[in-house]
Design a binder for these strands. Sequence first.
RNA 1: UCCCCGAUAGCUCAAUGGUAGAGCGAGCGGCUGUUAACCGCUAGGUUCCAGGUUCGAGCCCUGGUCGGGGAGCCA
Length: 464
Amino acid sequence: MSWVSVKDAMGGKPQTSCTVKGWVRTRRDSKAGLSFIHVNDGSCFDNFQIVAPADLANYAEEIQKLTTGCAIEATGTLVESQGQGQSVEMQASDIKVVGWVDDPDTYPVSAKRHTFEYLREQAHLRVRTNTFGAVTRVRDCLAQAVHRFFHERGFYWIHTPIITASDCEGAGEMFRVSTLDIANLPRTPEGAVDFSQDFFGRDAYLTVSGQLNVEGFACALSKVYTFGPTFRAENSNTSRHLAEFWMIEPEIAFANLDDDIALAVDFLKYLFRAVLAERADDMKFFAERIEKTAIERLQHVIDSDFKVVSYTDAIDILTKAKKKFEFPVKWGTDLQSEHERYLTEEHFKAPVVVRDYPKDIKAFYMRANDDGKTVAAMDVLAPGIGEIIGGSQREERLDKLDQRLDEMGLHKDDYWWYRDLRRYGTVPHAGFGLGFERIVQFVTGMANIRDVIPFPRTPGNASF
RNA sequence: UCCCCGAUAGCUCAAUGGUAGAGCGAGCGGCUGUUAACCGCUAGGUUCCAGGUUCGAGCCCUGGUCGGGGAGCCA
């Protein structure tokens, strides 16, 4: 039998017949001889009102026993609603109960307010709530927009490896990947674990970044990006960190830091426009119930000219600021989040790009500037959230790259293929990285990053 | 990982070291073209786990687990 989504039913023509399927959110009985059933199937934020007349064959036996969470299939005629709150509803002629709720008293997602902390323990059911349904749709909208943005501009999506044999990526603690018997590890004569007997014939890890890999593809296909899972084994217990998260990393060839910044600005504006246009229903909910400024702050970023300021000038601004900072402002040290927030929220009152950071606080692959002190790195700071993007122009000159590897005590042999890219037709290139969940957080206003990913993985928690 | 706070009914929270309570949810009934409706009644407890102090521990002490806020690290 054909059926339609709740979204389509609500936009349907009165006096037409259809079937909808979904899960009961609430049921109210009226002694006027009918029940009101609100059904949601995830196709949109709103619930669909089904009017069940008492003369349905299963009215007393089943309809009046429906509780939150039951799955039903309802067939009837669309009519203009006699009540407030919806324009179209269904006058049902047949309602089948597809799945009952085993014990309504202990149904974990009953029709009442729940804390996000509690719902996190019910991650398989929390998506049936208004908030998590909305988060899921917005997350999908953003993911689709990410691919659309790059596709429209001729970028290729590169599936960089999840497993890496490179333990020198330097971006954080890594998860080891191994098939060795932990209870009975093979040993070398010296007593070390013998990874030559492991699956890959050496030690291996889960990736912390696809950047080094994707640089190779940029130096052949010109415009590329990664969008995939990323893993950090850091013992971080914050509302902004996950052990498993999704990261987006574009990389462009024949490009400098200015091109990189322009791309980042376009990218953010594109994503925010997409979500405002496509998920107005969910964004209205976030603005009403989660974060009052959810919509206006996206619009603000879309309408703003991003300010671009050098790190050195940013230090100057912070030094002259009347505000007292907990951490001292000093050239050569990284900006604290309080410093970043001052720049974007108080001084510029707009999104800010800070560029040209001291080389000693940045990674080896960032391109040395002519001043000998700074590198072509940039961070995009947004009001209300702080750092949202980090990127750089990459060092394409082999002698300069080797110099940095030496200075930082890294072994050239470990980077042989990365160095090859500088030996064979090297070109200026640049890119940036952005944590997908942080964008979802910024857009929705959700305070904890664990609530914007379906099944969060954090230290001490890999449930579900 | 560090600092601070917390864990009691399905959920959110009360309870001077002395009989464990309320609201919501659930069940039953009433009322109503209703909107997370409203009114009444009923049921519902290994007080996170393991020890300890005490005549007596939800409450005090020790250790642990998990959660929250902040910090660091970052995306």
